[in-house]
Design a binder for these strands. Structure first.
Lengths: 127, 127
DNA sequence: ATAATTGCAAACAATTTGCATTCAG
DNA sequence: CTGAATGCAAATTGTTTGCAATTAT
């Protein structure tokens, strides 16, 4: 594996953007180097993911969201407004324990999006 | 809204299949009525969803998974083998409470897929 | 030279849109 | 007749593939 400029660009983009779709990464990279092709973005993301450097999450419909592997958190995606909130993965520790004990399922808490309604979009406060 | 044959077919398909992608629903419907177009499947699913009759979940990459609204459960999707397990939504009650209290986030527990490794694909048992 | 990497165009899959046709009230 | 619903073809979006050109060793 060679650390080509293109690959560094993708990494740099992820450092700056924190998380982004392939398309967004591409646009970001192309601001400084317009010749970089989106195919290369995809291939680089695949490579970096296989190396464990980046990871991706599906936030619902549409393109997946890539981020540095270090950047671990759970996403709360609002059905209504699409806003994405982040929650430290420790919040899911209990759930992870339950799933492991009862289902033998090793939850990957950071490759995860939870959907629902955010505070702003919740119809009424009843408590 | 008229209860057309096509719409009934989609509903019937979901009753039988429990959950399926638009493509799978289309194939199922076309077995008995080959003239039904996949566009109609999409439009019907959208309509039924807006009526609250069906719902969909994203199980990762690829097409979303539709099911009857009644058919509520949480999906555990295994990264490795792709196997999908189902968990009653009550299992997430505690998490839902935490998210609501701390983030004002109303979790939609049945529109949800959790990813990780299933029992069969978990490298070792350490407890 | 040779093996890896890239860009480009074309293929693909999933979904949506425009529009003309059909159908029920 | 009139609006709703459908089918079909074409457009769109996100992604992958084939292949030739480029690059680092």
């Amino acid at each position: 594996m060679r650390m080509t400029p293109q690959r560094q660009f993708v990494l740099d983009a992820l450092v700056d953007l924190e998380h982004a779709t392939p398309e967004q990464i591409c646009q970001y990279v192309q601001r400084s180097t317009p010749t970089v092709n989106i195919t290369t973005i995809y291939r680089t993301l695949e490579l970096l993911e296989s190396l464990g450097v980046v990871r991706h999450t599906h936030l619902g419909h549409g393109a997946p969201n890539y981020s540095l592997h270090e950047h671990q958190h759970v996403h709360l995606v609002c059905h209504k407004c699409g806003r994405v909130e982040e929650v430290p993965r420790e919040r899911l520790a209990e759930l992870a324990g339950t799933l492991r004990d009862e289902y033998g399922f090793a939850l990957d808490a950071s490759h995860l999006a939870l959907t629902g309604r955010c505070r702003q979009c919740t119809p009424a406060e009843s408590s």
